[in-house]
Design a protein around this nucleic acid. Sequence first.
DNA 1: TCTGGGGTCCTAGGACCC
DNA 2: TCTGGGGTCCTAGGACCC
Length: 426
Amino acid sequence: MNQPGDDAPRSTETARRRILLVDCDMFFVQVARLEDPEGAGRAPLLLVGGSASGRGVVTSADYSVREFGVHSGMPVSQALRLCPRATVVPVPRQACVTRSRAIRECLEAMAPVVQAASIDEFYLDLTGTERLYAGQSLAQTAERIQERVREATGITVSLGGGTVRLVAKLAVERAKPGGVHIVPPGREAAFLQEHELADLPGVGPALLEQLEARGLRTVKDLIPLQYEWLDRWFGPNRGRWLWERARGIDPSPVDPDPGRKSISAERTFPRDLPRDSDGDGELDRRLRRLALEVGESLRAKGLLARTVTVKLRDADFTTRNASSTLSQPISSDRAILRTAVKLLDDLRDRSGAPVRLLGLGVSSLAENEGARQLSLLDSEELEESDRDRTLSRTGDRIRKRFGRDALLPGGLLGRPEDPNDGEDNP
DNA sequence: TCTGGGGTCCTAGGACCC
DNA sequence: TCTGGGGTCCTAGGACCC
């Protein structure tokens, strides 16, 4: 008996959907070449990655470089040992954002529902467009979209398709590079059973180890198991998730606007900061810069945040977070920084090791409704004042007009009487 | 020349309230 | 005076993805 009980997942009869996943082939490499046709464009062994710290990893590598064993996430230093003749260029971040937007706009002209799953992946829900694409199979529609994206943006994409997102995601791996792969309705379960569990998105090294400890390596291995066993071994949520995925069940909709949950910025230093007063002063300056970045991004999106998180990574790579949730939402640099300084102090107290990375994030986001609700608290208890907000908005405008460095963190953020860019000042 | 930076989601435990 | 759940919010940490 392999039927789930009352609490178990059901393979509900859903309307037959037509989902495509548009995945840009080695997106960062393509963009780097388009942006610099004479340089990166002519380098056969191109590797995109690294960082200002000189401690970067590979973001994307040309297929010719991958043949040397290079893959994304690998330290650039290691990649260059494997492939010494590779040309390394930094990620053209702004160009990638611009191209990604152009691709999205192109797709939105062809599909009613488009979700950007990442900078280089887009889910399309074409359900209900049968009449629009009259007489075309999903594969033919996919090819048309592929052609259109290339014409409009210069970017080569691969497409996977099926009745659910999970199937489209697995199918696009078969389509790469530059192809189309559609799994027809009714073939989902059989298609899934051609895969290993490690192929499923969401199954990483940790879960894989647990699965293998139970003798489970392929999707096929999972099918004969009763739901109750998965529940017992992996817990109800993960058990249900595995049970469904193995059968190609994926109820998640293509959501054109999932809404942002957090905004963050972090930096790895070229050299670990020692924990003397010098290093700590530098840490404070870095925190100010991060507060500016995060604050500016928050305000540009018209959002407010209630939770502030500071992240510290020691030289030995151990990473600790501290977060604090305020009673009222904030958006000013000063309020963000004030909270972050306290959190950083907490984290600093807990370790004397040199610091490798500092990060700052905000979450518990809400739309800024414009007119702020008048608080019943007196101004002493407000998390930020109207003046704080005005100062931040002014700073945004000045930086927009005169450039990023027009207002260094010591300016509006620093205390006026502080001549020294806030050395060790709270 | 070990290990970036931007995210999302889940879990577990404690506080607190009803 | 003693005692029990359920729900929600918060914090810390970890897994995972591109």
